[in-house]
Design a protein around this nucleic acid. Structure first.
Length: 422
RNA sequence: GGAGAGCUGGCCGAGAGGUCGAAGGCACUUCCCUGCUAAGGAAGCAUACGGGCUUAAACCUGUAUCGAGGGUUCGAAUCCCUCGCUCUCCGCCA
């Protein structure tokens, strides 16, 4: 949620900035809601004050056993107006809240302006793509002989599901363990195990709801509805929902390995081959809850934490600054890491690291007590460190051999029980 | 699944329809005292959102908030209903 004060004070600037990410702010609607709210709130609060003070007098009179008929009369005279005002105001504030929840974050000034992914800015390219002396295969073809089984996934669940068997499943697990160990032991994140099902409050907090319900899987449970997490950013970031944390507790650095579930609504026909885009995939997520002054330092730090995995796995990649039009709903600034996929002869996203500034914190009511005792919103950041499935794909493809075997990256050999090739 | 108890400010805890945003304690902040890593004294100390004033802040003022939502009432932390969560006992269970 963006700061409503920005809309009250400087809606023109907000409109321009939001337009740069393709969101057309409905200024007229906001202003008419806001004007109505102002008038109604003043009127209603005025009536409430009247009622409260008369009621207080009634209490005093009654304690002295005096007559209260006159006071009762005057309070009754305003009661209809008051009730109507209160319910109208509640409705209006609900509308304003809905309006606010649907507005994406305002891009940071350093975010490149652009419409689509073609406007993203490549900041650097790291590592040389390997020169192959044979025809490269994609991970689907190589994986087939190693237990990467899309047919079985389809039989069990449907399209965009996969079963991984044998040594490849072990490799998948090894990747996960390596990432978690690195982010905890080396980079100082606290490892967490979190629910995979969350309530709607959590998803509103991080910005997936109410706008992106179609992207989520949900289950009904008794009367209530639970959602499968699309990323553990949701659970980890919601640790601080409705909390006022101590200044000394910042930064909070959390990591978790969880499956992620995405309906991939609207991506029909995209990446249908292979395990680039699945309904279920694993991810090691990094989340930081930080002091507002430190969030951009933290962002750079988190990018380096994700990069470390790629460099230590010796995978070629590049770093992009996403343009305004390509960023996620809650982000003010996002860096993407893209890994080289030889079969596609291109780089594909494997990590996304974002600073949401106070956008999520406002929804979450996640605050800290500042030095002068004020409750201020924290800044929240999240990033993949990394997506496990796509890392498996990258390893299969970049480490493939002519005979169809896959060399295990050095960093993972110990996690594979000493196996160097599968 | 059954039975019961509970949910009050950063924490503990009183309050059982009227002058309660809420006693008291702890923690915290400032000041005083004290020749010492302690003790004592004074004051302050919830949050959100409005309105006024203002360049802004400070300030003044109002409203709301005692798990959440609804209801009764002139008036609800207090009474009623629904829901959520926590704890205890029984049952079942990885």
């Amino acid at each position: 949620m963006i700061d409503i004060q920005i809309l009250r004070n400087d809606i023109g600037i907000a409109k321009d900035k939001l337009l740069s990410r393709g969101f057309d702010l409905d200024v007229a609607t906001f202003q008419s809601l806001e004007n109505a709210r102002k008038e109604l709130q003043v009127k209603t609060q005025d009536l409430q004050e009247k009622r409260n003070s008369i009621s207080k007098e009634i209490g005093i009179l009654k304690s002295k056993n005096e007559n209260t008929d006159l006071h009762m009369k005057s309070v009754n005279a305003i009661s209809d107006d008051l009730k109507a005002g209160e319910s109208e105001l509640a409705e209006l504030q609900g509308k304003i809240n809905q309006f606010m929840l649907d507005i994406p974050n305002i891009p940071h000034e350093s975010t490149p302006i652009g419409k689509s992914e073609s406007d993203n800015k490549v900041l650097k390219t790291v590592g040389e793509p390997r020169k192959f002396t044979f025809n490269v295969k994609d991970h689907v073809d190589i994986g087939a002989q190693h237990g990467l089984n899309f047919d079985l996934g389809a039989k069990l669940s449907g399209a965009r599901f996969v079963v991984i068997e044998g040594k490849l499943a072990k490799l998948h697990r090894a990747i996960t363990q390596y990432m978690l160990d690195t982010q905890t032991d080396k980079h100082g994140y606290k490892e967490c195990y979190t629910p995979y099902l969350v309530n709607s409050d959590s998803l509103i907090g991080t910005g997936q709801l109410p706008k992106f319900e179609a992207d989520l899987f949900s289950l009904s449970h008794n009367e209530s509805k639970l959602y499968l997490i699309p990323t553990s950013e949701v659970t980890l970031t919601n640790f601080v929902r409705d909390e006022v944390v101590k200044l000394s507790d910042l930064p909070i650095k959390l990591t978790a390995h969880t499956p992620c579930f995405r309906s991939e609504a609207g991506s029909y026909g995209k990446d249908t081959r292979g395990m680039i885009r699945q309904h279920q995939f694993d991810k090691v997520e990094m989340v930081q809850i930080v002091h507002p002054d430190k969030s951009y330092d933290a962002l750079d730090e988190m990018v380096s934490h994700a990069e470390f995995i790629l460099t230590s796995l010796e995978l070629p990649y590049r770093l992009l600054s996403l343009c305004s039009g390509d960023m996620g709903f809650g982000a003010a600034k996002t860096f993407d890491l893209e890994v080289w996929l030889p079969s596609q002869n291109t780089y594909r996203e494997i990590s996304s690291v974002s600073n949401c500034e106070a956008f999520q914190a406002r929804r979450l009511k996640a605050r800290f007590k500042s030095e002068d005792g004020k409750n201020l919103f924290v800044h929240t950041l999240n990033g993949s460190g990394l997506a496990v499935g796509r890392t498996l794909v990258a390893i299969i493809e970049n480490y493939q051999n002519e005979d169809g075997s896959i060399t295990i990256p050095k960093a993972l050999v110990s996690y594979m029980g000493g196996i160097e090739k599968i």
